[in-house]
């Protein structure tokens, strides 16, 4: 029984998100039965995958007890890079994809250097770097534009029967990046470091390298998200990633990832991302105008952050309450 409750506690975030997703899809289907067609599923998947990838990246950093406010800018940067340099030939597509992933790792490494080695507070550091990355995107591409070859776009956004390729991309990212990392020592160290930094240091964990690796992984996920956005919109837009910074946080927290670190998985943020994306999609279907989008996103964020805050308010002593607020 104790084990069961313990397990439930672990999975309460993903579970609630899953229930939420089912509920919202039912509402969706009532208003628009076409959503259950191959095209409908593909478009829902396409709408969710970017946020899911961003959420995964954010989660890796959250698990170390830090935060990444530059994820949105990283996505924009890769998006602009890909739309600017991707030619039509297979060679150039492959080259640009590889370069994009390397850019993701590099910008993540910069964040990691500043936070883990420069000892600048994570929020301030990534807030500053987000402007640097945004500036680079804007320099690359002052106006939205550029082009993406159809072959690449179709590869990521098409579907095979009921199975959208975007879902396969997410699955691939999980299989090739997430699972290997969290089955290895690095993943263990990330969780341990977020759980208790002092114990981690005392246990001989290379804490700075771990912090750095977390940001690099976040950058990698952001790069994949940026590439997918490029395929979806077939263009580059220097502000396309902005919304993903805070929404990735919301997706992760909705999915049960603790802001204080040491806890989280991949299912939660993915389901959280799907839930958020579908909610925003449903709004337009049920007749709420697009003007409400930001308002509702902001409202969801406030709600999620507020709920996370209320959890903290259970602290018994003022020392722990005031100690934790300055992260």
């Amino acid at each position: 029984m104790r084990r069961f409750r313990e397990r439930l506690g672990d999975h309460i975030g993903p579970l609630c998100c899953a229930i939420g997703v089912v509920a919202v899809v039912i509402v969706y289907a009532v208003y628009q039965p076409a959503v259950l067609s191959a095209f409908g599923i593909a478009s829902l998947a396409n709408a969710s995958v970017t946020l899911a990838l961003a959420g995964l990246g954010q989660t890796v950093v959250l698990m170390t007890g830090a935060l990444d406010l530059s994820i949105g800018s990283e996505i924009s940067l890769v998006n602009c890079f890909a739309a600017t340099f991707m030619g039509g030939s297979t060679t150039s597509i492959v080259l640009v994809v590889v370069a994009s992933l390397l850019i993701g790792l590099a910008v993540g490494a910069i964040n990691g250097l500043v936070v883990a080695y420069g000892r600048v507070a994570p929020l301030i550091a990534t807030f500053c770097t987000s402007f640097v990355y945004a500036g680079i995107s804007l320099t690359l591409r002052p106006q939205p534009g550029g082009s993406i070859p159809d072959s690449f776009a179709n590869l990521l956004t098409g579907n095979w029967g009921l199975l959208p390729f975007s879902a396969l991309l997410l699955l691939l990212a999980v299989l090739v990046i997430w699972l290997p990392v969290f089955r290895s020592r690095l993943g263990r160290f990330i969780l341990a470091y977020g759980d208790n930094p002092e114990s981690a240091f005392a246990s001989g964990i290379p804490v700075r390298k771990v912090g750095m690796a977390a940001y690099m992984l976040a950058g990698l996920f952001a790069a994949i998200a940026g590439l997918f956005l490029a395929a979806e919109t077939t263009s580059g837009d220097p502000s396309i990633g902005n919304v993903y910074t805070l929404n990735s946080l919301a997706a992760a927290v909705l999915g049960g990832v603790a802001l204080t670190g040491g806890r989280g998985g991949m299912l939660g943020p993915i389901l959280g991302a799907i839930l958020l994306s579908i909610i925003l999609n449903v709004l337009s279907i049920v007749g709420i105008s697009a003007f409400w989008q930001d308002f509702i996103e902001g409202g969801i964020l406030m709600l999620v952050l507020g709920l996370a805050g209320i959890r903290l308010l259970r602290a018994q002593s003022w020392m722990t309450l005031l100690g934790r607020s300055q992260s």
Partner: peptide, 8 residues
């Protein structure tokens, strides 16, 4: 002060 991790 133990050097352990509650979530592991």
């Amino acid at each position: 002060e133990l050097s352990l991790f509650g979530s592991l």
